[in-house]
Design a protein around this nucleic acid. Sequence first.
DNA 1: TTGTATGCGTTATCAG
DNA 2: CTGATAACGCATACAA
Lengths: 359, 359
Amino acid sequence: MTENSGQQEQAARRLREGSGRAKLEEVAHLAGVSTATVSRAYNMPEKVSLQTREKIFAAAKSVGWVPNAAGRALASNRSHIAGVIIPTLDNEIFSHQVGAMQRVFAEHGLNLLIACSNYNPDLGLQQAMAMIERGVEAMALAGETHPPALYEHLERLAIPYVLTYAYRPGADHAMVGFDNEAAFARMTNHLIELGHRRFAVVMQPKDDNDRVEARLRGIEKALASAGLSLDGQSMMIGKASLDFGMDCAGRLAALPVPSRPTAIICGNDTLALGVQMGIARAGYQVPEDFSVTGFDDLELSSRIRPALTTMFVDNRQIGRIAAEQLVTCLTGKSDRPQSHEVAVSLRLRESTAAPAQEP
Amino acid sequence: MTENSGQQEQAARRLREGSGRAKLEEVAHLAGVSTATVSRAYNMPEKVSLQTREKIFAAAKSVGWVPNAAGRALASNRSHIAGVIIPTLDNEIFSHQVGAMQRVFAEHGLNLLIACSNYNPDLGLQQAMAMIERGVEAMALAGETHPPALYEHLERLAIPYVLTYAYRPGADHAMVGFDNEAAFARMTNHLIELGHRRFAVVMQPKDDNDRVEARLRGIEKALASAGLSLDGQSMMIGKASLDFGMDCAGRLAALPVPSRPTAIICGNDTLALGVQMGIARAGYQVPEDFSVTGFDDLELSSRIRPALTTMFVDNRQIGRIAAEQLVTCLTGKSDRPQSHEVAVSLRLRESTAAPAQEP
DNA sequence: TTGTATGCGTTATCAG
DNA sequence: CTGATAACGCATACAA
C-alpha cells in the first residue's frame, strides 16, 4: 500500500514536473552558450564554429540529451512522421510494401506510423484521423476506396498522399500500382487463347475492396469479349486461405462434366495453391483436368509442382516508389505526388495448358 | 482593438505559411468560451456542462479543427505513440506480431511507429533513437541482442520496453516469447527418440541473431545428451529461402550413405519445405529416406504432402501480450512490464518417422 | 559567429 | 462549472 502510493506519487510528480529528461536549455548552460546556438549546432551546423559545436556536443552527451520532438514539431511545424494505412499486415503483399516504404522514409529521417483497417473503411478513417492528429506529414493508403471525409481532411490540411496497389488512368488521386482490371483481363485472355470455354473464379471477398472489384470486372470483360460468361455456380468468393481454395476445388471437381470448368482463375496464389491441392485430393490433375492461375507470384509458386501460372507484382517497388513520391513532396522538389504505373508480368508455367478434347 | 489586430496578424501568418489549420483558440472564440474549456470538453467531458460541450463540438466541426499533437504532447507530456523494432517485415513471424500489437495499441489510443533493423544491431539502435526522439512512450524490440546503449537510453528515460520472440528465465529484461533453446532441444529429442543417429541442420544465419544461436545450442545439447554430435559438413547455414533449402537437400542427398544424415532439422518451415522439395527432386522420399522438421507451422505446412512436422508458434499472441504489457505500464496499472512465456507446440506430422534399417 | 526574445498549440494550475 | 494565465521544449527572426 505504502509502496504503491509512493510509486503513484512519483509518477504524478514526473508528469507535473515535466519529462524529467534533460532539455536543450541545460545543454546550453553547460556549454556556456545560448539555447539558440545549441539549436543551430544541430540543425545548421555550418553556422556554428567548430569549437563551440564540440563544446555543445560534449555537453549534450554528458547529460544524455535527447531532443524533444514535441517542442521541435511545435516550433518548426515539422513532425518528421509519415503514415501508412493498409488492410492487414497478415498479407505479405502489404507487409512487403510497408517494409520498402519504411526503408525509404528512414533514409530521409522520417519515422513511419502504421495502422490496419482490416478491410473496414470506417476503421481506416478512424486510424487515419488519429495519424493526422499525430501530425503526419505524408500518408500512403492502400487501395482507392476510402471515405470522402478522409480525402477532404487530407486535402484541406494539405497533407500529400498516395494510393497504392492500384492504378487507374485519369484517377483523381496520385496512385502507385497497377491496373487490376487489365491484369486479370490479361490472365483471362491467356486461358481463352489456350482454348478454354468454361471458367470458374475463386476470389477473396470484394466488399470494400476496390482491387477485387476491378479484378472481377477484368475477368468478366475478357470473357464477354469472347462471347463467354460465368454462370453463378462458378463464382466462388471466400477467405483467401489454402482451405477455401481446397474446398472450392472439391466442389468444382464434383460438378458433372458438361458444366465443370476447365480453367480456374484464382484471386491470389494462396487460393491457387489451395485449389491445386484440392484438385489433387479429388484425384484429378493439373493442368490435364484443370488449368489453374494465381496472382502475386509467391516464392513458393514457381517451386511447387506443377509450377503455378501467375502474375508477378513487385510490391516492394510499389512501396518504394510511393514513399519516394511522398518524400519529393516533403523536400519541396515536387508540388504533388505523381501517379506511377508499376508493370506486372505474366509468368506462364505448368499449371495452365490447353483443355483436353471433349470425348 | 488589440484582439482584432491579433487575429488579423494570425490570419496573415496562416495565409503566408499556407497552413489552413484551425487551432483550439479559434474554436474557443467561435463557441464563446475559453481555451481551457475547449480542452476540457475533449479531455474531461464530464467536467463541462452538456450545453457548452455541444456548442464547442459544433464550433470545432464547423472549422474542421484537428487537435495538434505537438502542442498536446508538449503540454501533457504524452505522445500517444509506441514503437516497435523488428529485423524485417518480410518474415511473417514478425509482421504477424506487429499486426497484433498495432491492434492492441489502437484500442488504447496509441499509434504505432515501426522500423526494421535488417538484423543489424547498429541500424536497430539508430532507428530506436529516432523513435525515442519522436517521444515514444513504450517500445517493443524483437530479440534480446541489442546494443547496451539502447537499453541505457530506455532505462534512463524510463521508457517501458519488452523484448519479443524470445524468453529466457531470469533475464534482465521483460521478455514475451518462448525458449528457443528448449524448443529446438525438444524437436531434436523427438528425432533421437525415433531412432535417428545422423543429423543435419539447415539454419538461417546466426550473426546478430540470438534466437538462432539459442536454437543451435538446443540442438547441440540434445545431441550431446544422447552422446551424439554434428560433424561439420552437416551444418548448413544460409538464407532462409526455399532455394537454399533445396540446395542443401541436394548436397545432403549426394553424400555417401555412411555419412548421410537420416534426419534434417531446419530453422524454419520455409527451409524445411525447400528441403522436402530438394529431396523429391533428388529422387528420395520423405520420411522414408530422410526425416525433416521445420519451425513456425505456416498455414501451408500442414496441407503439403508429406505434411511437415514442425513447431507451432503463436506470433500474434506474442505481439498481443507484449503490447498489453506495455499498455498496463502506460495506464499506470503496473510499474514494469512482466515477462511472459508463450507456449509452443510440437506438431508431429508425416515428415518424420523412424529411420530405415541399415542393410 | 552568437545572443535575445518570442511564438508554436495545447494542457494544467489556480482562482473565481 | 468556467476563465485567465503560466508552463511545455525548441526554432528562428532579429540584433549584436
